[in-house]
Design a binder for these strands. Structure first.
Lengths: 195, 195
DNA sequence: TGCGTGATGACACGCCGTGTCGTCACTGTA
DNA sequence: TACAGTGACGACACGGCGTGTCATCACGCA
């Protein structure tokens, strides 16, 4: 039997989630979380950069997963189609985690510092998409804007999904949001922009 | 003569900017900034929520400015045209602040914690746009997506603007970015989305 | 048996951010 | 002149945050 249980980060994450739900984010101290996981404060900071980071353990692998998936899409696929394939794949991967995501989202909404951290998560995801598109020879500006739109759509789809019944399909929401975006942009295609 | 100089926040902001440039963000302590401005640490935290906040003093008025401007746009203007008018106005207002913005941006780029805070700034700006659009009877989902696109375009235009010669026109960059976005979205309008 | 490795504990420490109280110029009123 | 209210700031204490450093000990390996 090993001296140390090998799932320290996971236990800390669970302890943090429970503590935040019970006492709120601000009124929970790191020593409390660590003790709940049977570890010390110092060990907490070996696994997480700060207190907020304990809520974002799962997101660390996402950027790499994005890159891996987009590399698997045939080169003939257009940029937009490629991104849509990626988002659809992400939907399928996330679909089963709804309860955990809902718990986390509720805590994030309650604390500005966590919303801030959540924005960084979205940003990093967008960066991964952008880089993968550039690897596929998409021009930098187009890659950037397309990645930004993709992340915006995905986050909005998640938000709507969490507001609906638990058995709702995330991918359906995503397609609806995507149509909204295109409709908005096309609506203003020919108006007076003073050019 | 007043006992206290009335520009404490501005002096603290300047002291912080100088200190960050000289020693870096992490190696600058709040007492250092306060002393440089001729004030105490406690007073620093009366004007700023935290150390990072001292770089974002000017942005506090932006959301209200957005709302004020969008309320002045005629009701007949379409949502997209309204947003474009707002962005153009913002460009004209920002155009003269290029040196200060460049200094600040350089510091922000050097520190993840500041990038995070900068994302919150963008987010709040988007929220203000969204709310103003909803006031103009734009549907909530369309308002959200349009606001997100607007902020994305604006931030990208600023980034490109800072990379170009000092006399470049920000509004020209913005229009170019906007065209990119629409081109990207229309390119994928009729492809195989599996629907 | 001995050695290297790696995760954890233990401890100290400086900085962050807040609560609280006192100080004092400024303002308005009479 | 007098005097109370206001509001910005200084002074001080304090708990929590996050890091540097060294000791401990199971594990794998030879």
């Amino acid at each position: 039997m090993p001296r140390w249980s090998p799932d320290a980060a996971l236990r800390l994450e669970a302890a943090a989630l429970d503590s935040f739900e019970e006492h709120g984010f601000t009124d929970t101290t790191v020593p409390q979380i660590a003790a709940r996981a049977g570890l010390t404060t110092r060990t907490f900071f070996r696994h997480f950069a700060d207190k907020r980071d304990s809520l974002f353990l799962r997101d660390r692998e996402f950027p790499q997963a994005v890159r891996d998936f987009l590399r698997s899409v045939p080169a003939e696929s257009t940029p937009v189609a490629t991104v849509q394939l990626g988002l659809a794949s992400a939907c399928r991967g996330v679909q089963g985690w709804r309860p955990q995501i809902a718990r986390r989202q509720a805590i994030i909404r309650s604390e500005p510092a966590l919303q801030e951290r959540d924005l960084l998560r979205s940003h990093r995801l967008g960066l991964a998409i952008e880089q993968s598109l550039v690897e596929r020879d998409v021009a930098q500006p187009q890659a950037h804007t397309l990645a930004a739109i993709a992340v915006t759509c995905f986050d909005l789809a998640i938000a709507r999904w969490l507001d609906e019944p638990p058995d709702t399909d995330l991918e359906e929401n995503l397609l609806a949001v995507w149509d909204d975006v295109r409709a908005v942009m096309e609506e203003g295609a020919g108006d007076g922009r003073g050019r």
